[in-house]
Structures are given as C-alpha cells and as structure tokens.
Design a protein around this nucleic acid. Structure first.
Lengths: 242, 242
DNA sequence: CGCGGCTTTGATGTTCATCAAGTAAAGTGG
DNA sequence: CCACTTTACTTGATGAACATCAAAGCCGCG
C-alpha cells in the first residue's frame, strides 16, 4: 500500500463522522510516533461516536474493550464510595483519554465516565492499542509519559484540594475553570452545585453558601450556571492562602 | 558474549554488595521480559547502595538521573505543601520503585524520598531504562502496567483516607501495617506520631488521642512504637464504618 | 544533670456537615 | 400550553468533629 493511498484512507475515515478526526490527528501528539501503516491499523480498529449530555460513556466494573478518547465536549470520571456518595476524580477535555489509569492495569473500568455536555468520543479497540504499545517503543514511551503526567496531576490536585479550606477550594475550582477550561472570566459551568461539591469534597449547601458569599463580596457574579469573575486577584489570593 | 558468561556477570554484580540482588532478579517480575543481553546492559548501568535510617534517597526538585528501586528496608515519599506542612504520599517497600510517577513525565523529582529504616537501594541509570522501554515492547508494557497500578492505588487510598473520620483513618493505617507490611498483629511501627499523622492527614495530637482511646477500649496495645492488635474484628469494623 | 525533642492529656474555638424549610427551575402528563 | 410534580437551589440554625493552643511528663543525649 502506497503512502498516498494510506493518507487518503485516513482522511476519508476522519471525514466519515465529521471534521474532528482531522483535529485528532493534527492536535494530539500522542500518535505522532506511529507510522502511516500503524495509523491505518488503528483507524481500522476504531469508531467515532456521539454521546448526549448525561449519557454514560463507560461504567465502573464493566470490562474494558476500548481505549476511549474524548474528541469534543466534556466528561466526568467518578467513583462511588461505599456510603453511596459519589466523588468526581477528574474531568476529561478534548484530547484526553478516559479511564486511562486502569486501562493497562485492569480488565474492568475503575471509574464511571459520564458526558457533561453533548460530546464526541473515539473508541479504539483495546487489543489494538496494546499491540501498538508492544510493537512501537517510541509510542509506548509517549503513552508512559502521558499516563505518568495524568496520574501525577490527579494526585497533585487531590492533595491541593484536601489541604485547603472551603473558600480556597471554591476559588481553586473557579480559577481552574476560568483559566484551563474556558480561557475567560465569564463562562457557563456545565456542573450542578452537587457536582461541584463532588469535585472538591464538600456539601452542595456549602458550595452555594460560599458562592453567595463571593457574590456578596463582589468577587464573582453568579446567575444559575453562569459565572463571571470580577476580582481575579482576590480569588487567586483566596485560593493560595485558603 | 555467551549466555554463560552473561549469567556469570549478573551473578557477580549481584554478589558485589550482598545477596539481595539475586532476590531482585528472582522476585521482581518487572524484569522478566528482558533478555539476558538486556539484563547485562541494565546491570552495567546500575549500582546498589546502602542508605541509613533518616537519609534522603532522592530530593524533590533535583534532576532525575536514576531509576531507583528499593531492595531492602522501608522509605517514605513525601511532598511539602506551601504552608510548610509535610504530607506522606506513600511508603515504598522492597521491590517498589521510588519516585515512579514523575520518572517518565518530568526531569526533576516530584517527591522527596527518605529511608525510614536502614535500607538498600538499586539505582539504574535513567537513560538506560528509557532505552530499554523503547526497545523492548513487552518490558514497556509491564512498566506501563506497574505505573498504572501504583497510581491507581495511591489515588484509591488517598480517597479512602479522606472519606473516613479520624478513628477510621487510624484503624485503616493499623490494619494496613499489620496485614500488608508485617503480616502480624504485633509490630514495631517505624514512624513517629507526626509521620503517622502526615500519612493520614491529621494532627499528631489526634493520632495520639485515638491510639489512647483504642488502648482504653482494649482494641490495641501501645507502648511507644510497639503496637499489638488485640481485637482485629472491631478494628476492621471501625475502619469500614468510619 | 539538664537540655531539647517527642509524646501525652486537657481546654478552647473554629470549621464544616447536617437538618430543616422555603423558593426557583425544570420536567411531565393532560 | 398550562397545571402539577419533581428536582435543583438557597438560606438559616444547630451540633459534632476536628484543629489549635497550652502545659506537663517522658526519654535520650551530650
């Protein structure tokens, strides 16, 4: 098979669903180390799927059959404690892998992943991924780096959250959304108050209480799910000192 | 180089320091997938070192030059928060890798590792490790599994600890030491009260308070660092309900 | 012997979860 | 499309859990 043909095939595959797969190839550095032949192999063993807001993408306890990759949208990884309380471990953004931590160590999903907004995911057959990892050393090195980075980050933010008081946690959450997710001081939070609480280990009541407090002090503007940060400097101080 | 010669070389390398390296080879499954040639390469690029109790094995912020492996003893991974408070992320036991999470994603150590008891570590040149990962797919797959498992476990126990009240945390810690580290109901804890507190996110005062409480209720016997579990069933209940 | 660090216990105050009750918003069926 | 039900949100009051402060006892070490 010629290179030209291969590229053509990739492109058509991408175009099947929508333009996102083109982004997939050009934006994610994770597949950089794959040869064209290997990319074709992956493309043959993947499918792109749209998921509606609220739909479950993968469920804790179910067998892992695919390496799931978020192309568009936002999703939450959550785990359910014995007491029935749900905790949100992390959010997945476009180009993030889902259920990543357990994907090479277990054969069932550790966390339940749910779409927070209408999203598009790309599902690669897990055995194909494993084969690629074993065959391509550079690729496996990149995956290793990626997993390592993600794990590190989850651990770091978990400790950061737990070492702060409630005001600091809310500040952390708001700054994070503003800077990392929306790159704007004004955004619509795709989370309920309860979900916010689950992300930063507090009760929905206290989330509301502190949001109201911040509004009273003219640090933010809140109207339902819409949030506007008015005094970023103060918010940063609260985050760092909390 | 013949196989015989290689094995001889390995053995002599191991014997240099003490018998532990034999265990290293025979006990850790992580190097199973390496060929004899690759093992020789690794052995040529490693050194075994004894570290005294309290000595720092690797320091947060310093460049990663080696892939450090605990052969004998016990070590703590800790991070220092902005407020100056230290937190213990995890303990490393024999055959555990140290600083593992950041080792492929960063070029400086994320955590400071300190020996809790006199220990022996094996230091493998980091570039040699990286080369092995790139060259041997089965090996990289095993490393991937290992990192994935460790990260998973740290995340899981961190959440477990944070969802429990103080009595539950102490119970968790004691049961863990008894079952996973010592396989006995009676052991000498190689940690100060302050270090215990740093492991389970509480104050030294409360650690002491609850240990005293457990002693009063005949759940445990405490005399300095020596701990004896008298009522394991009750301790398990406190851990699970706490 | 005396000093400093680790340990222990008690007293106090703050932070936060829980409970309760009311309001707004979002589905749902006629 | 509107009444109705349900779910999410909001605020206040209360109590429990835990951190902090203070002080005394213990132990090893020079």
């Amino acid at each position: 098979m010629t290179k030209k043909k291969l590229l053509l095939l990739c492109k058509s595959k991408f175009m099947d669903i929508n333009q996102h797969c083109k982004n997939c190839k050009y934006k994610s550095h994770l597949f950089d180390k794959l040869s064209d032949e290997e990319l074709v192999f992956i493309h043959k063993n993947k499918q792109t799927v749209e998921v509606k807001r609220g739909a479950i993408i993968s469920k804790s306890g179910e067998p892992i059959r695919e390496f799931i990759y978020l192309i568009e949208g936002l999703a939450k990884l959550q785990k359910v404690g014995k007491n029935g309380k749900e905790q949100i471990i992390s959010l997945a953004r476009p180009l993030d892998f889902i259920g990543l931590l357990s994907i090479f160590s277990k054969d069932t999903y550790e966390y339940t992943v749910t779409a927070l907004v209408d999203s598009v995911v790309c599902k690669i057959n897990i055995d194909s991924m494993r084969k690629m990892v074993q065959m391509n050393g550079m690729f496996s090195m990149d995956i290793l780096k990626y997993i390592s980075t993600i794990s590190d980050e989850i651990i770091r933010t978990t400790y950061a959250i737990n070492s702060k008081n409630l005001r600091g946690r809310i500040a952390l959450l708001l700054v994070d959304f503003s800077q990392r997710y929306f790159q704007s001081n004004s955004f619509d939070l795709p989370l309920s108050r309860k979900e916010m609480a689950e992300m930063i280990d507090m009760t929905p009541e206290n989330v509301i209480r502190i949001l109201s407090e911040f509004r009273r002090d003219n640090i933010i503007n809140v109207r339902g799910k819409h949030i506007e940060i008015l005094n970023m400097n103060l918010l940063l101080k609260i985050r760092d000192l909390g």
